[in-house]
């Protein structure tokens, strides 16, 4: 109560000396809490980053988006982009047969690299085959698999682009 009274009176200069003495410990508590919070807020990793060799981190981050599919799959998709026209319908076929085990990555990643084209999946989100994806496609982008049928347009980086 006294501390509050002292604090509310501004610097406490107008109050009696005893009030100022009692206000001191709570001011110390506030100062300690303030400094502790400053220390908790500071992110030393960011400061360290200026002074360390960043090459290992760069290598890790470079492959972070594609992990085990790096570097071939993104390079394959760039090749597919270079060999297909805008507006083309492209089905994406990869060895993974489960949506959450990797087909989602392959399909979404193809969307990113192949903007301007319609990307069609060959698998539904509940892991059922979706043959319409291939049937409706102008092209089939086949990666990590052996092709059956279709006219080969381009091959590279572990994949083949077929025209239906």
């Amino acid at each position: 109560m006294w501390e509050r009274a002292s604090a509310r009176s501004g610097t406490g200069e107008a109050g009696p000396h005893v009030l100022r003495c009692l206000a001191m410990p709570s001011r110390i508590v506030a100062a300690v809490a303030f400094l502790a919070l400053v220390l908790l807020g500071v992110e030393p990793t960011l400061i360290r980053l200026t002074f360390v060799n960043r090459e290992p981190l760069r290598k890790t981050m470079e492959r972070a988006a594609d992990r085990g599919w790096y570097p071939d799959y993104p390079l394959f998709l760039e090749g597919v982009r270079a060999h297909t026209p805008r507006g083309a319908r492209i089905a994406v076929v990869v060895p993974v047969k489960s949506w959450e085990a990797g087909y989602d990555y392959a399909f979404y990643r193809a969307n990113y690299y192949l903007t301007g084209r319609d990307i069609l999946p060959v698998l539904t989100q509940d892991n059922r085959p979706f043959p319409d994806g291939v049937l409706r496609a102008d092209y089939v982008a086949l990666w990590g698999m052996t092709p059956r049928g279709g006219r080969e347009v381009w091959r590279g980086n572990g994949g083949i682009l077929l025209q239906r």
């Binding site: 960011l46 400061i47 980053l49 200026t50 470079e62 972070a64 988006a65």
Partner: peptide
């Protein structure tokens, strides 16, 4: 220094987050 460190972090490679490219 914090900001300089962040400059290195943010530009260390292309954006890598799933939600960025998806």
């Amino acid at each position: 220094l914090v900001i300089v460190g962040y400059c290195f972090y943010a530009t260390i490679s292309r954006p890598w987050e799933w939600d960025y490219w998806a």
